[in-house]
């Protein structure tokens, strides 16, 4: 499974932290990889709408997360912004942040 993860926006977007990261689950710690794969399954990532939540037009400084996952012949991209209330997606973003740090 290949994941491209990109964070943009926020109170202080920085060039270093906003560059897209590519994560290959075959190349990371196996325990972490299986955790990641099970979350992707649990949130039914490939069934999610491409734009997950809408941003209040008065909101500002929120982070935007773009997640693209390739698994076999399936490819799907999802964009979502703060605040993310879904627990599974919050966990997914946390793990992706941790791995790409």
């Amino acid at each position: 499974m290949q994941i491209i993860f990109e964070i943009s926006g926020g109170f202080a977007p920085t060039p270093g932290l906003n560059a897209p990261r590519t994560i290959d689950t075959a190349a990371i710690d196996p325990a972490r990889a299986s955790e990641l794969e099970s979350i992707v399954r649990d949130v039914e990532f490939f069934e999610l709408p491409t734009r997950l939540n809408t941003t209040n037009p008065n909101a500002a400084d929120y982070l935007t997360y773009a997640i693209k996952i390739k698994d076999g012949d399936r490819v799907h991209s999802v964009v979502l912004t703060d605040p993310v209330s879904d627990e599974g997606l919050t966990r997914l973003i946390d793990i992706l942040r941790m791995i790409s740090a």
Binding site: G10, F11, L17, N56, P57, N58, A59, A60, D61, Y62, L63, D82, P83, T90, D94
Partner: peptide
């Protein structure tokens, strides 16, 4: 104390 080691502050509209 929003989120897990969350690196940001924002205004959600309210």
């Amino acid at each position: 104390h929003y989120g897990n080691r969350y690196n940001n502050a924002f205004w959600n509209g309210s």
